[in-house]
């Protein structure tokens, strides 16, 4: 039983680490703030959920589990709020979202 829990939590931790890394890669690769927000979203939702799930299996049934769960709930409430604040602030400062069509148009104009 102990071993089984260890293996299961190892799998969850590995999957969580994977999604956190994907979010970080998205933060680097995606073209502008609005798109990068989606990358950060992967880290904030599934990455954090799997990671904390893995830690919860490690701690067993104790107050630590409850605290980890509280962290997770806090993430799920706070992350969309700060995302919205960031997106709204960026848009109201006049930042234009990057888009594929406009980029193609710009390149054409630059060439002509």
């Amino acid at each position: 039983m102990e071993v089984l829990l260890d293996i299961l939590s190892g799998i969850l931790l590995a999957a969580g680490s994977f999604f956190i890394l994907v979010g970080a890669i998205g933060l680097i690769r995606l073209p502008d703030v609005f798109a990068r927000m989606h990358g950060a979203g992967v880290t904030d939702t599934l990455g954090a959920a799997l990671f904390i799930g893995g830690l919860m299996l490690q701690s067993g049934l104790s107050l630590i589990t409850v605290k980890l769960l509280l962290i997770l709930v806090l993430f799920f409430f706070a992350s969309p709020t700060s995302s919205y604040a960031l997106a709204n602030a960026a848009l109201s400062q006049g930042l234009k979202p990057w888009s594929r069509d406009e980029k193609a148009k710009d390149e054409k104009e630059g060439a002509s």
């Binding site: 609005f34 989606h38 992967v42 939702t45 799920f76 969309p80 995302s83 919205y84 997106a87």
Partner: peptide, 21 residues
């Protein structure tokens, strides 16, 4: 709005009456 933002791939940017950007 928070559910939209929470699902990666969509972010609510602005709320105007009953229309979300």
């Amino acid at each position: 709005a928070n559910s939209i933002t929470l699902t990666p791939g969509t972010v609510t940017v602005d709320i105007d009456g009953d229309e979300f950007l």
